[in-house]
Simulated assay, not measured.
Amino acid sequence: MLKFQRALLGAALCLSTAWAQAQDIRVEQPWSRAMPPTAPAAAAYFVLHNTGAGADRLVGAATPIAGKAELHEHAHVGGVMQMREVAGGIPLPAGAEVSFQPGGYHVMLLELPRQLKGGEQFPLTLRFEKAGELTVEVPVRHMAPAMQGGHHHGH
């Protein structure tokens, strides 16, 4: 009986730690751009804030509107700007913010059954190494929103 109580207490501590870590991650200004008729893919953008004392890492994303959602970045490789999938996730240091914006980090939405249209919105679930999952509603806009401040921390 004592083993069971200790196991139960351990599980409760793990859950409360995960809940506390999830509370330390904030997602602001989520958005996606309306797609032209021939676009095969879309992207989601946002700003991540880690208000906690511990570092975390964004390791994946999912949405019911796409067959696949991948973490991508634009990077200079050999003097050429390339878009590539980020292997191993994106670090989110303690007390920091990381911007996902055109020309930088973004969530690539692939295998879409149809084009996204302005005025729509969709759920996007972000998976963190420590904080677990966090789901946000992403509005689809005709134009990029005006970003507040210069959110370039983290790249």
Rank of each mutant, 00 (worst) to 15 (best):
F46E: 02
V47M: 06
V47L: 13
L48A: 07
H49M: 09
N50Y: 01
N50S: 06
T51K: 10
T51N: 14
T51L: 10
A55Y: 05
D56V: 04
R57L: 09
R57E: 07
A61F: 02
A62L: 11
A62Q: 14
T63I: 08
T63M: 05
P64F: 08
P64H: 10
A66Y: 00
G67C: 11
K68M: 12
K68I: 09
K68A: 14
E70S: 14
L71T: 03
L71M: 11
H72F: 10
H74G: 10
A75V: 14
A75I: 12
A75T: 11
V77S: 02
G78T: 04
G79C: 09
V80H: 05
V80F: 01
V80N: 07
Q82S: 13
Q82E: 14
R84W: 06
R84Y: 04
E85G: 11
A87K: 14
I90M: 03
I90N: 01
I90E: 03
L92A: 05
P93A: 13
P93S: 08
G95A: 12
G95W: 04
A96R: 04
E97A: 12
E97C: 09
E97F: 10
V98I: 08
S99I: 12
Q101K: 14
G103L: 06
G103T: 09
G103D: 08
Y105R: 00
H106I: 10
V107K: 06
V107G: 05
L109P: 03
L110C: 06
L112T: 11
R114N: 10
R114S: 13
Q115R: 15
L116C: 10
G118W: 06
G119A: 07
Q121R: 12
Q121H: 13
F122K: 05
F122W: 04
F122Q: 11
L124W: 00
T125S: 07
T125M: 01
R127A: 14
R127P: 09
F128E: 01
A131L: 10
G132A: 07
L134R: 13
V136M: 02
V138H: 00
V138A: 02
P139L: 02
P139V: 07
P139M: 01
